[in-house]
Design a protein around this nucleic acid. Structure first.
Length: 804
DNA sequence: GTGTAATGCTATTGG
DNA sequence: AGCATTACAC
């Protein structure tokens, strides 16, 4: 098994410092790696895995759990570089949710679930909770679905079943005291409805794994034998449910290695239990502990500032993070008077830094506490023509139209999926309104059967509806069944395209000529594109890997995207952009220049946290995470007034600013300002287009959107040619259906060459700079007069050639 | 049943 | 301000 000639880890190991080296080469027994920010944690984990494999450990027997898909992907890529992709492919590496979803699909029947169970996302779950509250005739103001969801989620994360919940006096008293005595009933009914829908929510993926391991010891034993080496990244963020899973899996071999940093625990609100890391030693008395304390990322100033911040927390493991890097610049603290001005300050500073320090867009990140703060930043960056990318926020898979098409697909695969059924049974409108649906819901509830069952036998379940409604229901059910048949016999892309067409979804969106409608239409194309890629490309993938089908089926596709939340693949291929994100999603990342904005009382720390010392400490750790993202320079800004719910509120600077060692700070306001630099930041924004060129360059998005939202094709030559008319009766699937999609690329774009002037339905006029790829998969880089440079997939782009 | 206007509620953080 | 729900007209 040892095959040193194929790869050589030893060379890589030589680049590690002594503690890193001992951690990476210590393979047996329980161990914990406490890794300070920027201490090369990922490097150690990847080298350790490579080292294991070099020493003959079968990659199939290594389980590495991460918290984000991004982290898993990055780690896998780094391991591939050392040991080669064929071996790295066999590692079990992924998020808790994806790994145990995979195991649950294999073992589903033991728990009474079908293999193709649906995974409900938060929206589905809340919607189901809402209908449960309605069915129980409870007041949804008293029982707000979001809060109920959090309560149920917390229970599951602590492995409290609905039975235990209802049988626990303490919990019952708590709920009575908070005027919500029926929470346990909602929990019970919610679980029953999930089961009836053959669905699990996110928390169930972990909860049910625990049930599986508890009730089926032989199954647990199987995986204990399989996973001889278990690693957990970001261990400080595990909740109780995850903790128990890991503990059980590792119980046989005790080759458990957890990696984390208690100072960066920022997910307690989601059930993470910092005690898991603080008490790890109690679980394993012969635990080996490794501390990585040398920071390779940041300047001395930043490390010192970060240390001074975290020293205000009481709960922490002793750790001394230090660096040999340069001293670096002090942290600028800048005050703005409004949130918009704060954006201007940041954008101007980025612009100046780019000029003075030869920095690129991608060297900058703007970090904020809440997503709502991105708006002011975006606007300011757009004014300065600085390209940016927002991470998080509304992800691709959460968009309305995407969820609509996916709901059809989900329903085709799992007819019991009630949330999908409710979502699309009358979209596009087919005359099945609230009245009919209410009747079906009542019948389903009375007879305790899934809605799908009622739908198929309205008479049997005494749904009092007329013949017209009956026919409509019948037609709908038949359509879904036909989708199911297609999905079983065709590949994911063919099936997806067929469903998009035949459901009427494509036509509905195509007929909507508002900019929003056009965008939705394009998003559907994009999703189909993704299905096509999935169908054709040899992606290495956890679920499909196990599948013996030649065809990549829709079922496989759905299982693979169910847990995807981010669409990180930059579609325009331009990676050189300023990054905007919440601090939470910035964990694990690093940037030369970091702006931490909105550092104000009641925002950061959040208003909701300031009455609890635990929560305040978590906010402080979050601030620590923010500062330690910076390599060269960190900048802190705050505003003295900010819009909230449409009204202006005054705010004051955060207590966290005064907790930083003053030696690290450069206060650019009030008495302590250093006047020499002040001008740089404040000269440029006397507001209202004082800066040269703004008047021409700046087109606020709102302005464009608030115009009459109806797209009026300009008369004559500039009329963008309708790119594609959905075939009215696409009944047969074959190469013909695939071809019809390719026809989306009009004749115009087929002959597109560099130098031509074109007009795009959304971006306006532009000049073609480059056309790459082979028809029908061509990509063009186009420089638009107003929108700037964009890369477009011609297949889907709605453009018209104006002249050569 | 469908579409639009008025109303009211909300914003931590996220897989 | 923006979004979701509700009220009301067709």
């Amino acid at each position: 098994m040892n095959n040193g000639s194929e790869y050589n880890v030893q060379n890589f190991l030589e680049t590690l410092n002594p503690p890193q080296y001992s951690a990476a080469t210590s393979t047996e027994g329980p161990m914990m790696i406490i890794a300070g920010a920027g201490s090369g944690k990922t490097k150690v984990i990847t080298y350790r895995i490579a080292y294991l494999m070099q020493n003959g450990v079968d990659p199939f027997s290594i389980l590495a759990l991460t918290f984000t898909n991004k982290a898993a992907k990055e780690m896998k890529e780094r391991i591939e570089k050392i040991v080669g992709s064929s071996k790295a492919r066999n590692l079990w590496m992924g998020t808790f949710h994806s790994v145990f979803a995979k195991i649950l699909r294999i073992e589903a029947e033991k728990l009474g679930f079908p293999t193709n169970f649906t995974i409900y996302d938060t929206d589905d779950s809340k919607s189901l909770i809402k209908s449960v509250i309605k069915d129980l005739k409870l007041d949804d103001k008293q029982y707000k679905p979001g809060l109920v969801y959090n309560r149920i989620s917390a229970a599951k994360n602590n492995l409290i079943s609905w039975r235990a919940y209802n049988g626990n006096d303490e919990i019952q008293l708590e709920d009575k005291a908070s005027q919500k005595p029926q929470l346990g009933t909602i929990y019970k009914m919610y679980q029953q409805r999930l089961f009836q829908s053959s669905a699990m929510d996110f928390d169930d993926l972990l909860f049910n794994t625990n049930v599986l391991f508890r009730d089926f010891p032989e199954v647990l034993l199987k995986y204990q034998h399989k996973f001889k080496y278990v690693m957990v990244d970001e261990y400080q963020d595990t909740n109780f449910s995850q903790y128990v899973i890991v503990k059980k899996l590792a119980a046989l071999n005790e080759n458990i290695c957890v990696v984390g940093d208690d100072a960066q625990s920022i997910y307690a609100f989601r059930g993470a239990n910092i005690q898991n890391i603080l008490n790890f030693r109690k679980d394993y008395p012969d635990l080996k502990v490794f501390k990585l304390e040398q920071n390779y990322r940041s300047t001395k100033i930043i490390v010192k500032a970060a240390n001074s911040i975290i020293s205000n927390n009481k709960q922490q493991l002793k750790k001394d993070v230090w660096t040999e890097n340069d001293i670096g610049e002090k942290i600028d603290v800048i005050r703005a008077f409004t949130d918009n001005e704060e954006g201007q300050v940041v954008a101007s500073s980025i612009f100046d830094t780019q000029m003075n320090a030869q920095a690129q867009h991608k060297d900058f990140a703007i970090l904020y506490r809440t997503n709502a703060q991105s708006r002011a930043m975006e606007e300011a960056l757009r004014r300065q023509n600085i390209p940016y990318k927002i991470y998080g926020g509304l992800s691709f898979y959460k968009r309305q139209e995407i969820k609509d098409l996916l709901a059809y697909c989900r329903l085709a695969i799992n007819h019991q999926d009630e949330e999908s059924l409710k979502r699309i049974i009358n979209y596009p409108a087919r005359g099945i309104g609230d009245t009919t649906m209410d009747k079906i819901a009542v019948a389903a509830l009375t007879h305790n059967v899934p809605m799908w069952e009622v739908l198929n036998h309205p008479t049997q379940y005494q749904v009092g509806i007329n013949q017209g409604a009956m026919t409509k229901l019948h037609d709908f059910a038949e359509m879904i069944k036909s989708f199911a048949a297609i999905a079983n016999t065709h590949n994911a892309y063919d099936a997806g395209l067929h469903i998009a067409m035949q459901s009427g979804l494509t036509r509905e969106l195509y007929n909507d000529k508002t900019p929003e409608g056009v965008n939705r239409y394009e998003n559907i194309q994009e999703l189909l594109n993704g299905m096509k890629e999935f169908t054709e490309n040899d992606v290495d993938d956890l679920v499909v890997q196990e599948d013996e089908n030649q065809n990549r089926l829709l079922r496989d596709y759905m299982q693979n995207i169910a847990l995807l939340t981010d669409d990180n693949d930059d579609k325009d291929g331009d990676f050189n952009k300023v990054s905007l994100m919440t601090i939470h999603s910035a964990k694990g990342l690093e940037f030369p220049y970091v702006y931490i904005v909105g550092v104000e009382e009641n925002l950061f720390p959040s208003q909701l946290s300031i009455n609890s010392s635990d929560e305040l400490e978590e906010e402080r750790r979050l601030f620590y995470v923010a500062v330690t993202r910076a390599e060269k320079r960190a900048t802190i800004t705050f505003a003295t007034s900010r819009y909230k719910f449409g009204t202006l509120n005054t705010c004051e600077q955060s207590r966290f600013i005064s907790e930083i060692d003053p030696d690290c700070l450069n206060l650019k306001f009030g008495k302590s300002q250093t006047s020499s630099h002040q001008h740089d930041f404040f000269s440029d924004f006397d507001f209202n287009e004082s800066k040269e060129g703004w008047g021409n360059q700046y087109k606020p998005r709102e302005q464009a959107a608030s115009r009459k939202p109806v797209y009026q094709p300009p008369a004559g030559k500039t009329t963008p040619k309708p790119a594609f008319t959905p075939p009215k009766n696409l009944t047969k699937l074959s190469s013909a259906s695939v071809k019809s999609n390719n026809d989306i690329q009009g004749d115009d774009t087929r002959n597109l060459t560099a130098g031509q002037t074109i007009e795009h339905i959304r971006f306006g006029k532009g000049i073609v700079e480059l056309v790459e790829g082979i028809y029908p998969n061509q990509k063009a880089t186009i420089n638009f007069e107003e929108a700037g440079k964009k890369q477009l997939i011609l297949k889907f782009a709605k453009i018209k050639i104006l002249n050569q």
